[in-house]
Write a protein that binds this DNA or RNA. Structure first.
Lengths: 209, 209
DNA sequence: ACTGTTAACTTAACGCCGTTCACTCACCCG
DNA sequence: CGGGTGAGTGAACGGCGTTAAGTTAACAGT
């Protein structure tokens, strides 16, 4: 790579910041994990030396966290859009699950960084907890379940317990389907849509009154 | 730590091997991930220098893979024992799920190494694929589902697709419950048993004819 | 046009990592 | 009691994330 760069002008220090995030994401997708991408590689890729990155990011973790937050910043909006216009809680729940899995499968590397590798980084000491991809999604899930129960559509379950269960299921689907369909697995690949369809169908059958 | 060690006698090179595995597991559990444990730490812990480890293990990955395989070597037997004596496919399926989650929650760090971090290491180039913790568990799952369908207890679903779905659910449960109940999460903790109970109940309701 | 200031970088280095290679022990067999 | 060899050491390599100090170039003010 080793791009040639002209030094940024006085007020334009943030130009580098953007280029770094872009290069880092590309390298992350290629390498498969943040461990396979070094600060020196990223710097090299944008035509700069490694210490220059620390003018814009505290450390490597923060850099990659921001890379992935860019992709998942619109996550909550995507989920909201998926249930928009749907009134029936069952339909809303299924749409929510589908959208969640779909979004995760579309950017598996970024999903893993945010929801597996660096989840603790996402939690600790953040003032904008609500901005985390998962936090609002979870609220949405709990609300939908509660609504369904109040309207007599769902059985009387503990909404928080049920939300954790459903989260676990969709989270597991993203990770499992990704693993099965891209790695050198001893298992056969699986049709994404079939699994998702079955999963949502099972979920509803298990919850409806 | 820095244990004092007397050099092993002629035939007893394997003594070190055992001590290393034990120390590595302890350090893994303390540190929370293999990244937080260095070869030098492990060596120091058993009173030896780092290169000595390479007399017994190819590299760090293999070392930790073996650490975790020791814990999960009996995984399949544990699952078998859980369904032993149960005839009804529904009961068997629920017992299988419970046992899986229970085992994962009991050794979360080792579970993560085997089923998340080093899963690719587990797959590629192994001649003993069947010995992998997950492989036989998956077979057991598919068999149980198939049996249930043939006996008219379960709805007619694709056994492989359904197995992937159920795997995803239990896998997700292990990871999610572990995260919620040990980390500094913005979410409240959750009662393990309640989630597992609800999950298994939902699963059966969704599958039974 | 010149100069001083300062934002935007570079160079050099630190300590740690996984891993390799050459070497030295100390035990056991004959 | 000597030779062979299995068990382990010491030093080093290249790479990593990160820091501290130095350098360069764009601008504001005169």
């Amino acid at each position: 790579m080793t791009a040639v760069r002209t030094r940024a002008a006085r007020g334009e220090g943030d130009r580098l910041r953007d280029e770094v995030l872009e290069a880092a994401e590309q390298l992350l997708v290629e390498a498969g994990s943040t461990l396979g991408v070094s600060m020196r590689q990223i710097a090299d890729c944008v035509g700069v030396t490694a210490p220059a990155l620390y003018l814009h990011f505290d450390d490597k973790d923060e850099l990659f966290f921001e890379v992935c937050m860019r992709r998942f910043g619109e996550f909550h909006e995507y989920l909201l859009a998926a249930v928009d216009g749907l009134d029936d809680p069952a339909e809303r729940l299924a749409a929510l699950g589908r959208a969640y899995v779909e979004y995760g499968l579309r950017h598996p590397r970024q999903y893993e960084v945010l929801f597996v590798d660096k989840k603790e980084l996402a939690f600790e000491g953040r003032d904008d907890i609500e901005e985390l991809p998962g936090y609002r999604a979870m609220q949405l899930l709990v609300d939908t379940i509660t609504d369904g129960i109040e309207r007599g559509v769902f059985r009387r379950v503990d909404p928080w317990v049920c939300a954790v269960d459903l989260w676990a299921q969709t989270h597991g689907l993203v990770l499992t389907i990704t693993t099965l369909n891209e790695g050198d697995t001893p298992f056969p690949p699986v049709d994404e849509q079939q699994v998702i369809d079955l999963s949502m169908e099972r979920t509803l059958h298990g919850l409806l009154t």
